[in-house]
Design a protein around this nucleic acid. Structure first.
Lengths: 122, 122
DNA sequence: CTAAAACCTGACGTTGACGTCAGAGGCAAG
DNA sequence: CTTGCCTCTGACGTCAACGTCAGGTTTTAG
């Protein structure tokens, strides 16, 4: 598949995909004319990349962790890196939950005129 | 208290505090010579600002929500804004948890030589 | 065959939350 | 008084993950 197809399939921009390649996150085979060709399998990889980006990982961190995240085999050094990132994410989750609860408290106490508990269900 | 004291007390840079003032997130009384003076109460406020920043809110969003987050009274429009941010945070938490679980799976399966379950407790 | 659509490689622009530097003034201690 | 630290106001620098534009080639639809 070509880059535009991949982009629309994953919901990411063409520019982003080229950027991922720049960062060594994504490889591509080139057609004789120089156009990028991707196997269907990269869809998962791109989604994983997006997921890691949204978890606050940098390109540098992702490029280090991606191989072992996909294959599953990992060196001790990478294991430390994984644990570290896991810790970061965990801390991030707990502070986010605190913030959410704080907003929730405001919402529920300041909106008694609504239905009952949740002002905007789901 | 002066700006340097506040900075070290909260663990934020002096520059950041001045930036918050620029963004109307933080007010200060000036001494005759023009130096900023803060009451002790701002410590909580600055910590709250940091918390909202780390939750992914922009200065613009924070400046809108801060009054009602502190006072507790809120207009219907602000209520919508609060709910929207709450939703964002909620979604962010769930994707983060997914990512964390994914990393966990890798860590636990790739580290059977460690103690037993958790390779790095806490 | 031709025009539109997609692709290519640079390369500069954007945004937000600050960092950093310059140059000048304030403030307690010795 | 002066030494040293803190503070002030601009104002430019940074960094990451792209957006966007220019100028050119390639593929596809009719």
């Amino acid at each position: 598949m070509r880059i535009g197809d991949l982009a629309s399939r994953v919901g990411v921009s063409v520019r982003a995909l080229r950027y991922y390649e720049e960062q060594y996150l994504l490889a591509s085979v080139r057609s004789p004319s120089g156009q990028r060709q991707y196997p269907d399998s990269v869809v998962d990889r791109v989604q994983l990349i997006q997921q890691l980006y949204s978890a606050g990982l940098s390109s540098r961190a992702i490029v280090e962790l991606l191989p072992c995240v996909e294959t599953g085999d990992v060196t001790p050094a990478l294991l430390d890196r994984l644990s570290a990132e896991r810790g970061r994410i965990d801390a991030q989750v707990s502070t986010l939950v605190k913030t959410r609860d704080r907003l929730d408290a405001i919402i529920t106490t300041a909106a008694p005129a609504r239905s009952a508990g949740r002002p905007c269900p789901r």
